[in-house]
């Protein structure tokens, strides 16, 4: 519904409220980013387009690494494609997407280290869904913010 938003719709208002019930909300989502949700979505979309990529390209690669690491590692660190060392931890239970449509996501946390650069990033199943379905990479200061430019380099989808 909101991958290419033109304006802050009522649905985005509701999502923004769910994401920022207070400034210090532990789940982050918008972090301390002062921008409206629509502005964050538009700015990140522009960056993804400038790289010649789509939200699907980035989310697809994250999803594939997650699946590889969970099926072979069962929670232990594994090397995926010779490029990333990945460990996935998962709590039992599920959580809803703050964009408020049907569906829940497992409480996983994926930690991946790029073996070439040493850079480490963290994402969750919900992060992948939000990039894929909503083009949402989260606000500045969110513990799960993934900068699209840095992410593309990390995933080998753009030159470093």
């Amino acid at each position: 519904m909101t991958r290419f938003p033109l304006f802050q719709s009522p649905a985005l208002d509701a999502a923004e409220l769910a994401m920022r019930p207070t400034a210090d909300f532990r789940h982050g989502y918008l972090g301390n980013d002062p921008r409206k949700l629509v502005e964050i979505l538009q700015a990140d979309l522009a960056r993804v387009k400038a790289l010649g990529l789509t939200h699907e390209d980035l989310a697809g690669r994250l999803a594939r690494i997650t699946v590889e690491a969970t099926s072979t590692g069962m929670g232990n660190a594994v090397v995926v494609d010779g490029a990333w060392e990945v460990s996935v931890t998962a709590a039992r239970g599920v959580l809803p997407c703050p964009f408020g449509h049907p569906g829940v996501f497992p409480k996983t946390e994926v930690r991946a280290r790029n073996l070439k650069t040493g850079k480490e990033i963290i994402w969750t199943d919900l992060s992948v869904h939000m990039i894929h379905a909503h083009g949402f990479y989260q606000g500045q200061g969110s513990p799960y913010r993934l900068d699209p430019g840095e992410l593309a380099v990390f995933l080998g989808l753009a030159p470093g």
């Binding site: 033109l6 304006f7 802050q8 719709s9 009522p10 985005l12 208002d13 509701a14 409206k36 629509v38």
Partner: peptide, 9 residues
């Protein structure tokens, strides 16, 4: 539009 959408919410 933004103002209107806020109002609708």
């Amino acid at each position: 539009l933004a103002a209107m959408s806020g109002l609708t919410a």
